[in-house]
Structure formats: structure tokens, C-alpha cells
Design a protein around this nucleic acid. Sequence first.
DNA 1: TGCAAAATAGCACGATCGTTCTTTTTTGAA
DNA 2: TTCAAAAAAGAACGATCGTGCTATTTTGCA
Lengths: 196, 196
Amino acid sequence: MSKKAVTREAILQQAVALASSNGIAALTIGELASASGMSKSGLFAHFGSKEALQLAVVEAAQAQFVAETLQPVLSLPRGLARLTALFDGWVGRLAGGRYPGGCPLLAACYEFDDQPGVGRDALIAGQARLRDTLQRMLQDAADNGELPPGSDPALLAFMLFGLVQSAHHDRQLLGRSDGEQMARRGFALLLAQGRV
Amino acid sequence: MSKKAVTREAILQQAVALASSNGIAALTIGELASASGMSKSGLFAHFGSKEALQLAVVEAAQAQFVAETLQPVLSLPRGLARLTALFDGWVGRLAGGRYPGGCPLLAACYEFDDQPGVGRDALIAGQARLRDTLQRMLQDAADNGELPPGSDPALLAFMLFGLVQSAHHDRQLLGRSDGEQMARRGFALLLAQGRV
DNA sequence: TGCAAAATAGCACGATCGTTCTTTTTTGAA
DNA sequence: TTCAAAAAAGAACGATCGTGCTATTTTGCA
């Protein structure tokens, strides 16, 4: 791998970590440069513009999620097993100290929602795809007869996404550490065969 | 009312509107001044510091929510009726064009979650109180026998909050207009006496 | 090992940030 | 109507923003 690619990767690791704390919008080239031990202009040359940097950060954060949370569960059998593992990993990720400042992608959703550009486009595409993935897993579980009869995969995907957001909200803003457990209980409630 | 108070109120109206689009953190004194038809220094004198301005914006947005969404339902009888009206108003508020750029308070939750200060403190207090209010309404409904037996008000409050966030996410980022309906269906699913 | 090319640093630019002055305009009561 | 007080404007500050430019260092192949 060329030195350029190695350095770029190291920069993006730093960038995602900083974006976790302060948000992608607040991520400054000067701040990122000093955090990476580089000069402003040296770092800037890797991206060419702030917008390109933001896009790279979004893509890096998405790649981390896919590699660390989505990819590992694909070895499990389709249906409830795979779905449960994804949800567990997803919620556990929020509490696991991976991003002490909160999930950079969830934060980006609020920063970018009124700021058109390539970063926003990439974020939307990734979020929509994640939702589709979730919905497909729910459909697989329903096809296996592992969900209550009459379950609506689209509605359940919507609600599971809400559980994740609520858990994140509780932990990052309110400082409540039981959000993770609440989300798991909500998951069980929504997918339980019998009434809980 | 003194002229100062009138002007300050007008400034804060503008500020909340701008914060809806760009976020409170990105709210600039110069931008707010020109949007309000004032000079930077003239506006600045009303608050004394950026931090005080942010606090005032958070409090103004919270006051708007209480006055427009929470207060009106307090005339309804305690229990499921009041709870349903609050949730309806809350979700409808997201879609109603009141804040085209999204809910400024939800956005603030992500901006402030790692930025200590009086603005963050006020936001946390308001969010925690809203959650308590929601939970108390659920408890009232449970006491009335209007919820499925064994329902956990704390868990349901957590999940209803998630529905609101998911609806906001769908509308503001993904551009899906059916998030409002999804949230209502989720509400019905969670609170239904019989299994849906 | 030499050397073009790639990567990084240094410096400066216009713009805008939050903030502090002083000066001007506007207000409201005597 | 007068006039002190309140409110707003104007100008400037140091700092930092994103982004160009040129110079210097470092890399990887001949």
C-alpha cells in the first residue's frame, strides 16, 4: 500500500474519532491536522476540499459499521438468529466504548439533514440501505415463522431503528446506562411470539 | 413590555427557526443579526455571550414545545386520552411544517451531548422532564386499566421516544413522509389491549 | 546510490468568528 | 418638549476558518 493511502487511513481514523465527539460539521481541518500530527496544508492535500473530507469521513464511519457490526453476523443463518445478533451488536456498539462521544453516523444524520452535498447523499444512501437490510432480515424471520403472525417487517424495522436511537439518546445525553438493556427488552417485546 | 424584551423575543423566534435548519451550534451571531435586521453588536448586547445565547435558544425552543404541544393536552382527562393526544400532537408537530429543518431540540441533543455548559444542562433537564411526563402518563393509563396487563411504563416511554426519533429521522434525512403514520401505528401496537 | 516524483510543510490570503470598545439613535418619563 | 437612560450601530481586535501558493522533505524506482 502506498504511503499516501496509509496516511489517509490514519487521518480518517482520527477524523471519525473526533467526529464522534464534536460532530462532522464541527470537524476542523486545523484541529484534525494537529490531532494527526500533520500540517494543515499537508493534510488538506489528501482531500482537496472540506466537502471531500466530510464525504471521506462519512464513508469511513460507514465502512467501520459494516466491517465491525454487519459483516460478522452474515455467517449466521438467515432469520431471527441473524437479526438478533445484528441488533445485539448494534446496541452493544453504542455502549462498548467504541465511540465515547456517540455514534458519528447518528450524529451526522442530524447535522446533514439540511445541508445538501455529497456527504449528505452518501449518508442517506447508507442509512436507507441499513434500513432495507434490517427489513429484509425481519422478512426472513417472518418467512421462517419466527415472528408473531401478522408482523409487519417495515413497521418493525422502523421501530427497531427507534430503539437504537432512543438508547443512544439515553446514554449520550441523559447519561443513563440502562438504555442498552431497555433496547434489548424492547426488541424482545416486539419480536416475541407470545405477548410479554 | 419593554422594548428590550420585545426585541429579544423576536430575535429568539428567528434563532429557533435558524437552529431548526442549521443547528444551534452552527448558529452564528452575524447570521442571526442579519436575519433579524440588526447589527452584530446590537444583537450581542442582548445576551452578552454566545453561550448565553445558546441557552436562551434552548429555553425558547423548550417553551414553544410546552406551550404548543404539552400544555394543550393537559385539559384532557388523565390516562390514555391525554397520552394519545400528546403523542399525536408531538408526531404531527414534526410533519406540520412548524420546523421545516427538523426539531431544533432533537438536533440539539446530538450537538450538545459532548459539549458541557449551561445550554447542555438546560437541554438535559428538559428532556429528562419530558420523559418523566411521558412515563407518568403511561402510568396513569395503566392505573386506569387502559394498557395491556404487565405493561412497563418506563419501557414504553423509552420506546415511544424512539418512535418519535425514528419518525424524525425518516422525514428529515430519508425524506420519507410516511414516518408519521409509522409512528402512530407503532403507538397503537405498543398500547393495544389485544395483540395486533 | 542517484533523482524524478510524491508527500508534506510553511506561509499568506480573504472571510468570518466572538467579543470589546465608542458613538449614535431611540425611548419613555418628568 | 426636554433629557437622561436605554438600545442599537459602527468599527476594530485577535483568532481561526478553508484554501491557494511555493519550498522542502521524503519516498520508491532506475
